[in-house]
Design a protein around this nucleic acid. Structure first.
Lengths: 150, 150
DNA sequence: TTGCGTGCAAAGGTTTTGCATGGCA
DNA sequence: TGCCATGCAAAACCTTTGCACGCAA
């Protein structure tokens, strides 16, 4: 709500950098912290939380939560690419985040709005499921569980 | 994986009861704990976690997470109503969970599957946005922030 | 009686907060 | 120089785990 939202600090840049570099992923505070520590530029956890909060306020970053639960994934919001015009698919197996550019979804959104009175927030909504690669993979496998973390 | 999954205990019933009573909502361990305590039947937190884990294994309850983050919302899975044939809308303002019965969504799912190779998991996927009531409400209000917690 | 389920307490994580210091404007 | 941002440490939570006891089968 404030024109100039805070100072421009080294830490802010580092975090924003990380966010833009990982624009195709949902990142966590732990992930940022670990990455920066590994790159010789460690930042206090509290700072990361506080900066992310500000970035969310400024609309540069989006926070994903399950209801009001305390746990947070963040994602960079791109000013250019109209992320509010497409949806995100998240593979439950490999964790990949896919940006779905598809007119069908837009139609769905307007249909749901007109017929059901519900205005879908594309930025907030994530479709969970299984991506092509992973479903092909599981067809070839017998019946095991695949555990993949990034 | 196991035919008879564990014993039938008072605590299990209490939790399952709560889950079915709140079938239209995402519930948290904290919520269950508080509710049971207020009703004179307090249960240890650890028990709630362990029971929910079992209920998830048995397919009676579904767990929602944000990626691999540690934080959990749960929801009862109804054996009769085919929850896997419809999607859930969640209002970001009032927290209401809406079950959307709509053929359009089914079409979307098959389209995304055919054209984009991604198999959407309806049980897991939640559309976030603003419901009719809340959007009508905000039209009447000047420009304030509405803070609603359940 | 057997063994799973429960409760309590402790441990392990994550997120938030307080306070003195450092850095941007 | 005046504030805001940072870092550290502590606090507040949430979730998991260990162990002795109770209860279902």
């Amino acid at each position: 709500m404030n024109g100039s939202n805070g100072y421009k600090t080294k830490q802010r840049d580092l975090i924003l950098n990380y966010m833009t570099a990982h624009r195709d992923a949902h990142v966590t505070v732990g992930g940022i912290s670990e990455h920066l520590a590994n790159h010789g530029t460690p930042i206090g956890t509290a700072t990361i939380y506080r900066q992310l909060e500000k970035l969310v306020e400024q609309g540069l970053v989006r926070k994903y939560t399950v209801d009001s639960a305390t746990c947070a994934c963040f994602q960079y919001v791109e000013p250019d690419r109209k992320c509010h015009e497409h949806f995100h698919l998240k593979c439950e197996r490999c964790g990949k985040l896919i940006h779905l550019e598809c007119s069908f979804v837009g139609e769905l959104a307007s249909h749901v709005h007109k017929e059901h009175g519900f205005e879908i927030d594309p930025l907030r909504t994530v479709f969970y499921g299984v991506c092509r690669e992973c479903s092909e993979l599981s067809e070839k496998l017998p019946a095991g569980k695949e555990e993949n973390n990034e």
